[in-house]
């Protein structure tokens, strides 16, 4: 058992799906939301249809609905992760320049992205872990991060080797500077405030002291 695991022995970290469900609880009706590819896309599964939240997909879709039944696939309709999806009643299409004008113009209420690291000043690193290992591929991450007024990150608290993903300063290449407003991890929900990370809530059985021991930047409870 590594050091982090023994510190966390008294609590049960959330699964990816449980984090997605926790985050979904905080999205009110009426918001327009972009979900990043990967784990953030699962958030949509936990927003009930009767709570009208409008999901945007960067490839020109407003009002994205769930995956279709196998015999109902529209082969011209995919999301940013290139999976088949549906369009909700009331949904609309736009071209790419309009889609990113919408994003950059600050019209979305929320964007949820995955991340490698989030720094206490709100810096985000989520597109590359090295300078030259493979061809750089940024997609829409920088546009979403710079353009959306409210950016939440959904990620594991620790790397596979037990290092904190919440850091004082990002060591991976930045996606955007000072943009993250809140982080949902498998251990806690943490705001990024003007004076650093502020814990909103933690999984049962976890103490602030234990969370601090596995986090590389100072934590305090939300005041």
């Amino acid at each position: 058992m590594n050091a982090a695991a023994s510190i966390l022995a008294g609590c049960k970290p959330m699964t990816r799906r449980e984090i997605a469900a926790r985050l979904a609880d905080d999205i009110p009706e009426g918001w327009h939301v972009n979900l990043g590819i990967g784990a953030p896309l699962q958030v949509a599964d936990y927003v009930p249809q009767e709570r009208e939240v409008i999901f945007q997909s960067e490839n020109g879709i407003l009002g994205m609905g769930p995956a279709p039944e196998p015999d109902q696939i529209n082969r011209w309709l995919i999301n940013a992760g290139k999976q088949y999806i549906t369009l909700r009643t009331g949904g609309s299409y736009m071209h790419h320049a309009d889609s990113f004008a919408l994003i950059r113009g600050g019209h979305l209420d929320l964007c949820v992205l995955g991340a490698f690291q989030v720094a206490e000043n709100g810096d985000l690193a989520n597109w590359s872990t090295s300078d030259n290992e493979s061809a750089p591929a940024v997609g829409g991450a920088m546009d979403l991060a710079a353009g959306t007024p409210r950016l939440w990150v959904l990620m594991e608290h620790l790397t596979k080797t037990g290092e904190s993903r919440l850091v004082r300063r990002c060591t991976y290449p930045l996606t955007a500077v000072g943009v993250v407003k809140r982080v949902y991890t498998n251990l806690a929900v943490i705001d990024v405030s003007a004076d650093g990370f502020a814990v909103r809530d933690m999984v049962p059985g976890l103490t602030l002291e234990a969370l601090q021991q596995v986090t590389d930047a100072p934590l305090r409870m939300v005041r």
């Binding site: 071209h95 790419h96 889609s99 990113f100 591929a137 940024v138 829409g140 920088m142």
Partner: peptide, 13 residues
């Protein structure tokens, strides 16, 4: 390769 953020690429065109 010139890697360009997706929205920047669209807006440049």
């Amino acid at each position: 390769l010139e890697c360009v953020p997706q929205g920047t690429m669209a807006e440049r065109m």
